[in-house]
Design a protein around this nucleic acid. Sequence first.
DNA 1: CTTGACATTGACGCTGCGTAAAGGTTTATT
DNA 2: AATAAACCTTTACGCAGCGTCAATGTCAAG
Lengths: 254, 254
Amino acid sequence: MEYTIKKLGQLAGVSTRTLRYYDEIGILKPARISSSGYRIYGQKEIDILQQILFYRELGFNLSDIREILSSPDFDKVKALKEHKKRLIEKRSQIDLLIKNVEKSIAYTEGRIKMSDKEKFEGFKQRLIEKNEEKYGEEIREKYGAEAVEKSYENFRNMSKEQYEEMQNIEQRFRETLLEAFKTGDPAGPLAQKAADLHKQWITYAWGDYNKEAHAGVAQLYVDVKRFTEYYDKDQPGLASFLKDAIFIYTGMQK
Amino acid sequence: MEYTIKKLGQLAGVSTRTLRYYDEIGILKPARISSSGYRIYGQKEIDILQQILFYRELGFNLSDIREILSSPDFDKVKALKEHKKRLIEKRSQIDLLIKNVEKSIAYTEGRIKMSDKEKFEGFKQRLIEKNEEKYGEEIREKYGAEAVEKSYENFRNMSKEQYEEMQNIEQRFRETLLEAFKTGDPAGPLAQKAADLHKQWITYAWGDYNKEAHAGVAQLYVDVKRFTEYYDKDQPGLASFLKDAIFIYTGMQK
DNA sequence: CTTGACATTGACGCTGCGTAAAGGTTTATT
DNA sequence: AATAAACCTTTACGCAGCGTCAATGTCAAG
């Protein structure tokens, strides 16, 4: 049985380029060349190709394969044993690489967390600074420098998770407050729930809680124009509604 | 601090070619180019090079490194994790290769043994044929066809190891016999040791042993010219000496 | 006779440099 | 100041094992 280059390639599962290359480097020459210059392979070439592919799969390079094919079994075993050694070395090399990559992952992840933490600290600092700029004077006047410092201190000590939880509470507080405003009843359950969320928020922000201060803040929202505007810009009358709800919640007024 | 290409190379342990190549593919460009066209590197470039080498050691290719260097830590971790995956895959690939190489070694070694065995069988066959050609008639006459066939049968069933052991014994027998001949005493300890080795050799060759046959062979050495010549060509009188020693050993004569 | 599937040789490309070659610059020595 | 030694530059081939054009020739089928 004779084969053209393509037939042989299909039979063995390699490209024609590969076969031409093998011819070129002399490890698999065709049985004969047809009158038109085509490469014609026979059974013997199939057998050789099988062997080439076999050793190739074992990871030998072609020049080694060339030598192996033309050597007695004895030397084949030698080559195989040496190859095995090389493979084992390669494997321990890779093991080492894996270990180092793992180390590197741990290190880089650690750095990310560190960096995130630093960024968060910076972020909190900037928040405090902005707050100072905007409200510093007013809140110090109302609550005294000591209380404000204490609040800041608490904020600075807050972890990222705590901060996120605080943001979360604030978000729910805003939603609940708007829902409650629609009912128009500052003593109703929704409004009281909003007041409770507000309490939690303050507790987070200040680090402690007392009813008087809470009611004081509520009064602030109404008294100080900038705070009033902050709440009323979404819903006119919201600041006053919140103050009523909180006064009821804290028992300062029914 | 500024560095020429060679200085940087020595600092980092890479060739100037490498640095030029890194410049060429754009992963490490010099800080500036001197008026004479020299590449000048600064501290920043050292840092980048360190990183390049770091990732290179982990087995990344340069185009991956290029991307990693210009990506945030977050993506670096992603790349590292993917790389680890690839490494693990590669390792199991190699494991597979090792297994197959081992199989192949076992197979090829098995074939060698088979082939050796066949060769050995052929070798023994040829030995028997040569023996037949040379001595067939004579030994059949002396010992009978049955005894000779039995001997051949035993020889055919001999393993390679057994055959080698037999050769070994023959060698020691020849050496001892020559030593004994120098003493001139066929009843002496050396001559008796030679006779004993000769007995062992016969036992190997025939598969069994009896004193009469042993003495018969000894007589043969003297009676049959060809055998006599075989021993006497090293030492004239050796065949006769051996006969005496064996007769004494077997108790046929004192 | 045309078409499509096949064949040929030749040559570039990929990776990550090593290794010249041919020439210019800097530094040290005479 | 001349010269040599040491350094720099760009250009380009080579390595392994093919993939992938490109340009061109051949064969079997309709």
